[in-house]
Write a protein that binds this DNA or RNA. Structure first.
Length: 149
DNA sequence: GCCAACGTTGGC
DNA sequence: GCCAACGTTGGC
């Protein structure tokens, strides 16, 4: 899962313990929240558009039983209100995510690009702009191993 | 700030 | 359904 560290970083998540992952306004990601996310799922936390280092900075975990209505879509004061979303049939969902661990060794985008064993990662594929992408168990384990070195 | 690669919107 | 215009993402 991507987040811009200026907006919400792994340090923010560590401080908060857990957070509502809101503001998703993309149908593919919403569908993943709805259909694929379950409590206990592990998440790689990725810093995008980072001033320092862009890459995977740690691990989080899904802690909501299922995706639920993202309250920010109806909040005019929020970052991404959606006036077209009908409260009787809301468009956008959110999940709760908890802090698990911070990598001692950030897996930078640069390092992942040059690692032959990680080339299947969706995040490395051209044109990928989704803020949430699936990661294979093999890649996940490998990334955690390298990140905690 | 630039720009490639999307995704969304709306006229037809 | 097509497609041009526009908006967004995100690396650099």
């Amino acid at each position: 899962m991507k987040s811009e560290p200026d907006c919400y970083s792994i340090d923010d998540l560590e401080r908060d313990g857990q957070t509502l992952w809101d503001g998703v306004r993309n149908y593919q990601v919403r569908n993943m929240f709805r259909d694929d996310f379950t409590v206990g799922d592990k998440v790689l936390f990725y810093h995008s558009n980072a001033k320092k280092e862009t890459g995977i900075v740690g691990v989080a975990e899904v802690v909501s039983d299922e995706a639920y209505v993202d309250p920010t879509q109806f909040d005019e004061a929020s970052e991404h209100p959606d006036p077209k979303s009908d409260p009787a049939n809301p468009r956008w969902l959110a999940v709760d995510v908890a802090f698990v661990q911070k990598f001692s060794n950030i897996m930078t985008l640069e390092a992942m690009k040059t690692d032959k064993s990680l080339q299947k990662l969706k995040i490395l594929q051209k044109g990928n702009r989704l803020s949430v992408t699936p990661v294979s168990l093999t890649d996940f384990d490998l990334l955690v191993k390298k990140g905690m070195k």
